[in-house]
Amino acid sequence: MSAWEPNATRKPPATAAASSVAPLAGPAHEVLRAAPEPAPPPTALVFASPHSGSIYPADMMAAARLDAEAIRGSEDAFVDQIIAGAPSLGAAVIQARLARAYIDLNREPWELDPAMFEDELPDYARSRSARVVAGLGAIARVAGEGRPIYARKLTFAEAQARVELAHRPYHDALDRLLASARATHGCAVLVDWHSMPAAAARGQRARGGGSCDIVLGDRFGAACSPKLTALVERELESMGYRVARNAPYAGGYTTEHYGRPARRTHALQIEINRALYMNESTREPTQGLIKLAADADRLTRALADLDVSSLR
């Protein structure tokens, strides 16, 4: 279904979202708008899906010991489909095409593990962050269950190439979308959409009890107005979802980097339990994908109706 067809009937694909291993054809990300530039954005909303990409470039796989299927567990599969209706409701959407394991757009670009590289990293590399230690820096060292992805050490030149191909253009485009929203509406509202393994969701209790369906990350109130977080929480709970805040996910690089309420940009991360809409073993969607997409549209409408001048 096209993002431009809000009344079309959503149907999940019959099989799991396909990944591909090939040279990249076209841009590393896509931007979808309610109206093409230079028309001003109809709302202050910018939605991002940095981890739903499923293209594994040939240069990555030539260096890998694992095949693409073994790495796919790190993808936020189908999240782009969950928010596919957003452009027709006034939100700009930016979404990755390349797989997260190739370059993680929700990390600082130089958050790199020196053990992965044959040459020395520059002084500006952030090699001691908790994410790097876990093997999940800007270029992941491990896939699911801690399996090493690569058969050889990479070069820093390879990391630079990935940043220039995908990370820098994505964030340049996201910056422009947020600037346009601020210029038109006085502030920007960024929602960064993700999915989480069911095991992570089971380990976190939602408000009111029970394991959570959705985690809202606002950097413990630093990245957006409390009114925005409360609105999203209230809307989701009214739809029957069990919602937690900031644990186990308080928001990654995108939420932390862009969430500056004092500078008229509010950022909120939404993590969705994959068990709600897919079989994690087969990576096939379930009928839950239809409900989640409809509920994401309902949430988008509520956000579009929000008086953003009231956000502080």
Rank of each mutant, 00 (worst) to 15 (best):
M1N: 07
K11I: 00
A17C: 05
A22N: 08
V31I: 15
A34Q: 10
A34D: 09
P38F: 14
P40T: 05
P42C: 03
S54Q: 03
Y56H: 06
M60G: 06
A62S: 12
A63T: 06
R72Y: 04
S74F: 10
I82F: 01
I83K: 00
A84W: 01
P87D: 12
S88A: 15
L89M: 11
A91H: 02
I94F: 05
L98K: 00
A99F: 05
A101P: 05
N106W: 07
W110Y: 14
W110E: 04
L112W: 01
A115Q: 12
E120A: 11
D123E: 15
A125T: 01
A140V: 00
A143S: 15
H167Q: 12
R168M: 07
Y170F: 15
H171W: 13
A173M: 06
L174V: 09
R176T: 12
A179S: 15
A179Y: 09
A181Q: 04
S195G: 04
R202M: 14
R205I: 14
R207I: 08
G208E: 00
S211W: 11
V215G: 06
R219W: 03
A223Y: 07
S225H: 09
L228W: 07
L228G: 07
E233C: 03
R234I: 02
Y241W: 12
R242K: 15
R242P: 08
A247D: 13
P248F: 11
A250M: 01
H257A: 15
H257W: 10
Y258D: 09
P261S: 12
R264P: 03
L268N: 08
E271H: 07
N273K: 09
A275Q: 07
M278L: 11
T282M: 02
A296D: 05
R298Q: 10
S309L: 11
S309A: 15
S309E: 13
